[in-house]
């Protein structure tokens, strides 16, 4: 995982609440066995109609937002299916930050493992960013994971919170399995004892 510290970028406004992972990456793209190459299919059903013609009204088709690495969206972003493909698609497309009032739990975890910073701001702050990103040409934000701040050049300053451990992993680009294996000895001891609890075993050996 790439370490991430500060992102300065134009901001793509996705003015919808409850954006579910079926919209972020529709199921027809879940049949691949690779981890990469999902960016082209991000928000596929919103980007183009059934005949494949691009919808010029959709934010990612708007040339003003080309190259955006920051996405602003409504509450409960990432709800629904557990598919990590949603995080892969956002990252592969180039997004490094999503700002919203709230995020769904499984998506929250998946994003963190793929170098995407999720920033929770208040409904009012998100509404302000949504408005500015929609109306001001070339509107940019700087999101700093080191200072836990979101700033623009137009008087917007916000602090956000990230779980300290999550922040450390993102800043350092750490691999979760490697971190867990620091506890391998404790795990061996625990498992040996836990295995005696046969009533918690999936396949009880008779």
């Amino acid at each position: 995982m790439e370490p991430i510290r500060t992102v300065t970028s134009i901001v793509a406004p996705l003015d919808r609440v409850n954006v579910d992972t079926d919209q972020i990456i529709p199921k027809q793209f879940l049949k691949r066995i690779e981890r990469t190459g999902y960016g082209d299919f991000l928000f596929y059903d919103w980007r183009a109609n059934a005949a494949g013609v691009a919808d010029p009204g959709f934010v990612l088709n708007d040339p003003r937002y080309k190259g955006a690495r920051i996405l602003v969206a409504g509450k409960n972003f990432g709800c629904g299916a557990s598919r990590e493909h949603a995080a892969w698609a956002l990252a592969d497309y180039g997004f490094r930050v999503v700002i919203a009032p709230t995020f769904a739990d499984i998506f929250f975890s998946n994003a963190g493992k793929n170098g995407i910073v999720l920033v929770r701001l208040s409904e009012e702050q998100v509404a302000e960013l949504m408005h500015k990103a929609s109306t001001k040409p070339n509107y940019q934000l700087t999101v700093s994971l080191e200072d836990l701040t979101v700033n623009d050049n137009d008087g917007f300053h916000a602090k956000f919170e990230v779980d300290a451990f999550r922040r450390y992993c993102l800043l350092e680009g750490l691999d979760d399995i490697g971190l867990t294996l620091r506890h391998e000895k404790a795990l061996d001891t625990f498992e040996a004892k836990h295995n005696e609890n046969f009533w918690l075993k999936a396949k009880v050996v008779q």
Partner: peptide, 30 residues
Amino acid sequence: DSHTSTHGAFGALAFGIGTSEVEHVLATQT
């Protein structure tokens, strides 16, 4: 799969995870 919550009907703590976590559980059972 997010609908892993189904198994909670038996009083099991069951939840959906992403693919990185699937790998994590395969490797460490934690």
